[in-house]
């Protein structure tokens, strides 16, 4: 297309409509204001704090320490073991979530009587507060009278009641189980949305070509589901990395340090040791990691709204 000079003059970057440009800004203003105050400002402020040795136990002397807090955190052995525990908690949880949610989504994608009831019941774990979820599983895992012991005992899997959460080899997996139970519904719904968007023609065509159930799953369902699968997986990864509530309710990082994950360490640094400087540095490292992960998400999926 040819562009004449006259049409170019002084119009580059002009809005589609000045009225629209102005009204869009007005309509967006409240959201931008709120997000600046409650999201952007805290992130910047948090970085600022992380450069100081700020301790609430010693509020009048706050020396500037530069990146020392970061060095201190990175040299802390507990930090690296927390990273390891966070990673293994995340891997366990996300794997289980994806497997269970995929199975449930495939079931709900079928047409049968009672499907609506199932999808309504699916929302029960999703709606339950994490605190109640924690108490519920604490009671189930209880070493004295818990349902897990009772069930395994009645089924003759164990011959005497056992310690569960208190056993440092089992703690992380048991917390992961409680986390998975609550996260599965949302993952299922998101995967179901992905499944529903696969055109039915594809399946008919494959059936005509003689592909059996398994082949249809491998060659049509899985590739078509890839984007939503990725989206859910990365979302759940971020949720698992930052998860705090269950660690607080179920174990408080224990026994010993068996469930001492990063989120818990931030809490301990800031609100038990009251060392806001290192706490902020820790939180900043966490934020940065999740941020990069999210960036990777946006890039990989090439999202556009």
């Amino acid at each position: 297309m040819s562009i004449r000079a006259g049409a170019l003059r002084g119009v580059f970057g002009a809005p589609v409509s000045r009225y629209d440009q102005a009204s869009a800004l007005w309509l967006l203003a409240p959201m931008l204001a709120v997000l600046l105050v409650v999201a952007v400002f805290p992130v910047l402020y948090s970085f600022w704090i992380s450069l100081f040795d700020l301790r609430l136990t010693r509020p009048h002397r706050v020396p500037f320490v530069g990146l020392d807090n970061y060095l201190e955190v990175l040299q802390d052995e507990l930090f690296w073991s927390s990273v390891w525990r966070t990673t293994s908690f995340t891997l366990m949880s996300v794997t289980a979530i994806m497997v269970i949610a995929l199975a449930m989504a495939l079931l709900l994608n079928e047409e049968f009587r009672g499907r609506r009831f199932l999808s309504a019941m699916l929302l029960v774990p999703w709606a339950i507060p994490y605190v109640a979820n924690g108490l519920m599983w604490k009671w189930i895992y209880d070493s004295g009278y818990g349902a897990l012991n009772g069930l395994l005992f009645q089924l003759d899997f164990i011959d005497k009641y056992m310690v569960w959460l208190g056993d440092s080899h089992k703690t992380l997996a048991l917390i992961a189980n409680a986390f998975v139970w609550k996260e599965v519904p949302l993952a299922t719904i998101l995967l179901l949305v992905g499944l529903k968007s696969i055109p039915a023609d594809l399946y008919s065509a494959a059936r005509v070509d003689g592909a059996d159930l398994w082949r249809r799953f491998v060659h049509i369902t899985l590739p078509a589901l890839r984007p939503s699968f990725m989206l859910v997986m990365i979302y759940e990864t971020m949720m698992a990395i930052r998860h705090f509530d269950l660690f607080f309710i179920l174990t408080e990082g224990g026994p010993a340090e068996a469930s001492h994950v990063l989120a818990w360490q931030v809490y301990v640094e800031t609100f038990r040791k009251l060392s806001f400087g290192t706490g902020s540095a820790l939180a900043y490292i966490m934020a940065l990691v999740t941020f990069l992960l999210a960036f990777w998400l946006i890039r990989t999926l090439g999202r556009k709204l």
């Binding site: 297309m1 562009i3 004449r4 006259g6 049409a7 170019l8 119009v11 580059f12 970057g13 002009a14 809005p15 589609v16």
Partner: peptide, 16 residues
């Protein structure tokens, strides 16, 4: 009169 329409992305929909 000599109306032009150019979008912010540079696309020229109307020339003079």
């Amino acid at each position: 009169e000599s109306v032009g329409k150019r979008y912010p992305n540079g696309f020229v929909a109307l020339e003079e």
